[in-house]
């Protein structure tokens, strides 16, 4: 009896010891989720936007290519955003258009329009880890941030480029994501993402994304922040992609009918 009691006590102690970090985890997970929710909440109400984007592709040997595109985006209140991207260069793909409906939990819906053959093609969106337009951005990096897409953990507070930041870990909930986890630097003042480290399925560091030159935009009295430059660097290949946003305008005359297959077919 005595023996059994002792074992039980030991067992309890070990169990408590094992559970301790778990309690801490739950707390930091809650904190991570809170930060993610605040990030999303501060970015609600911008309605829609249009922008011209220059994409600069660089490979490890220094070869550089520039791509021009226009992106219209529609904020959806209870769902992921809708986006229509039209490519202007290189010339052989000029007029090619890409329509995507991103969703929080269901797979995204995507279509591509090929102007030479006038054909709208549905894309199997499970291939979200594939590169967007030969860039270092994957399709999944181009879709809107939705809280439900990840599981969070608060890691630490830190300083990034002189600003106080939260550093959180987010783990994609979609098994078809190309990432095992992402480490995100979010500034404490405006809840803007400043930097993301991406880790591949094996857990190795894959890419780093940095947002620079944040600009404030007022929509109906609320301030929204958008980076003018996004810089994605692939640690494994040495390739990088820079996105430069120009002529970003909010609250344009856009509604859902501007984001369907008919508008895709008309895009140019």
């Amino acid at each position: 009896m005595q023996n059994l009691k002792r074992i039980n006590t030991w067992f309890l102690l070990v169990a408590v010891a094992l559970a301790m970090p778990a309690f801490a985890d739950e707390k930091s997970e809650k904190q991570g989720l809170k930060i993610a929710k605040e990030r999303k909440d501060r970015d609600r109400g911008w309605q829609n936007s249009v922008a011209e984007i220059t994409m600069i592709l660089r490979n490890a040997s220094g070869q550089e290519a520039t791509r021009e595109m226009r992106v219209d985006t529609l904020e959806m209140e209870e769902d992921g955003d809708k986006a229509l991207t039209v490519f202007d260069s290189p010339r052989d793909v000029s007029g090619t258009a890409f329509l995507s409906f991103s969703h929080a939990m269901e797979p995204d819906e995507q279509w591509i329009y090929l102007p030479a053959i006038k054909r709208v093609k549905r894309i199997a969106s499970r291939n979200k880890s594939g590169p967007f337009m030969s860039s270092e951005f994957a399709f999944e990096d181009m879709t809107s941030f939705e809280v439900e897409k990840f599981k969070y953990d608060f890691l630490r507070e830190d300083t990034y480029q002189g600003d106080k930041v939260f550093v959180i870990e987010q783990i994609p909930q979609d098994e078809f994501s190309g990432y095992s986890k992402q480490i995100v630097w979010i500034d404490q003042k405006h809840y803007r993402v400043r930097k993301v480290d991406f880790f591949d399925k094996k857990g190795d560091e894959l890419k780093t994304l940095e947002f620079e030159d944040y600009q404030s935009h007022k929509v109906d009295g609320t301030t929204f922040w958008r980076p003018q430059r996004s810089y994605m660097y692939n640690h494994q290949t040495g390739k990088s992609t820079e996105l430069v946003t120009e002529n970003l305008k909010f609250k344009q005359d856009l509604d859902e009918s501007d984001f369907d297959k008919n508008s895709l077919r008309r895009a140019r």
Binding site: A124, G130, T237
Partner: peptide, 14 residues
């Protein structure tokens, strides 16, 4: 059918 695999054999090829 059409079945696409992305990132075949550790490349970025589809």
């Amino acid at each position: 059918f059409e079945r696409t695999t992305v990132g075949v054999l550790g490349t970025t090829h589809d």
